[in-house]
Design a protein around this nucleic acid. Sequence first.
RNA 1: GGCGCGUUAUCCAAGAGGCUAGGAGCCGGUCUGCAAAACCGUUAACGUCGGUUCGAAUCCGACACGCGCCUCCA
Length: 493
Amino acid sequence: MTLRVYNTLTGEKEIFVPLLPGKVGMYVCGVTVYDYCHIGHARAGVVFDIIFRYLKFAGYDVTYVRNYTDIDDKIINRANQEGTDYRTIADRYIQAFDEDMNRLGLAKPTVEPKATDHIAGIIGIIEALIAKGHAYVSDGDVYYAVETFPHYLKLSGRNLEEMQAGARVEVGDKKRHPMDFALWKGSKPGEPWWQSPWGNGRPGWHIECSAMSMEFLGKTFDIHGGGKDLVFPHHENEIAQSEGANGCKFVRYWLHNGFVNINAEKMSKSLGNFFTIREVLKKYDSETLRLFILSAHYRSPIDFSDQNLEEAQSGLERIYSCLSALDDILNGQSLSAEIAVIENPSQVGLELQEKIDQCLPRFVEAMDDDFNSALALGVLFEMVRAANRFLAETKEYTSLSLSMIAHVRHLFVETGSILGLFAVLPSVWLEKIKSAKADRVDISPEEIERLIVERTESRVAKNFKRGDEIRDLLLAKGILLFDSPQATTWKVK
RNA sequence: GGCGCGUUAUCCAAGAGGCUAGGAGCCGGUCUGCAAAACCGUUAACGUCGGUUCGAAUCCGACACGCGCCUCCA
């Protein structure tokens, strides 16, 4: 397997070769903890979660660092609004972040450092930058002099002159150049502060990521990720800081995920068109949200809408229904060695065997191509189709067919562990969806059960008219009935 | 204004010079008292105009439309 990744720095897909064979260092920008996370954060979390999982699956020893930026103007503003201190705000939203990511089923990163635990490292880098002439002190603040770094803006492919042309950059009177950015901010009265060679103050945005990545991954490491909106200025500034201070390459592969849109427009706090993760998870199951996110390539924009989430749910239901049927057979059948010493696999059996053989290679091929989860899911849906067909046409399960079914089931466990899907017992997941839908319907399960009993009695008495009336009545309330020889079951449309 | 990205059937969405993507849906069929689920079958696509090529959704150019970054943002 040869992994190829799209590198923002070069604008091309490149063969992934880690710095040290068998090891990967990966840093992903987490969040500034001043509010609840929205679906955009969920996407970034899920995308880098599957990248982390896939790298491990590919045999790498991955060190995955995802930070909390727990000191920042926004946090301070929020604290002032609520009349409390910055720590209270930061801790509250760190906890909320952890809850949200946990519910989304994200694997824990190797390290989750906080900016405020790395003030010494931050100060060290700033000192190095001043010593090398990349930074200057100005009235208690320290600024990075962007003109001293020749590669500035190499990631976003711009140049300083163009940036200034139509720019809305305010020239701070403390700055030498309008594009210079703060490394250290002197604290105003009432603001949190740490001691530094330049007086009491706090770090600027950007520097904490340089410090924490260097602490855990070294001066040069393999992968740095984040949302597209971080390319400029955040990641551009990180490069300037780290490469300016260390004099060596900072990051080998830059990966950026696309936005979540609402009606084709970017979801963002400033536009006010965002949904928090916890809001969405009230309505949709977390694996549904995951499937929705993974059904598009991570670099493309995705449009968040009820219709798209419901389609994702239907798709996931299709998979879980199949898995549930597989489980029923595997749990219900005991292997009888006597059956079929010689088996002639049927046509559907041969098809299924072919899909089984191709499943993992095709899945891996898709993921190797810049983590093409949408294509990988397509492979799994083909597996579902082949398995359903096999189940529908197989009357007696021989040891061969049972082992094929077990193999299919295992493939979903294996690929699911990479995508973070199918982690729930199928019967439990299906039941959960059913009851969640039932909550939205204007009729109680007890009432439904009562009507089903009445309908069954009518049908036994060949009173199909009454039976159909009841079915239509329930259908009008969004309840579908399924008759089988054993019993009548129901689900919400 | 600068830089960049996108436009695939009813909708969502992969693919990227000749090889069935996939999902949701529509319409037939099997099953069923009639249905549903499941399965089978069928349908349909590459924004517009040029160019390169034996062959173009795919490469090149122009145009149109949409979006993003250039200000805090995942």
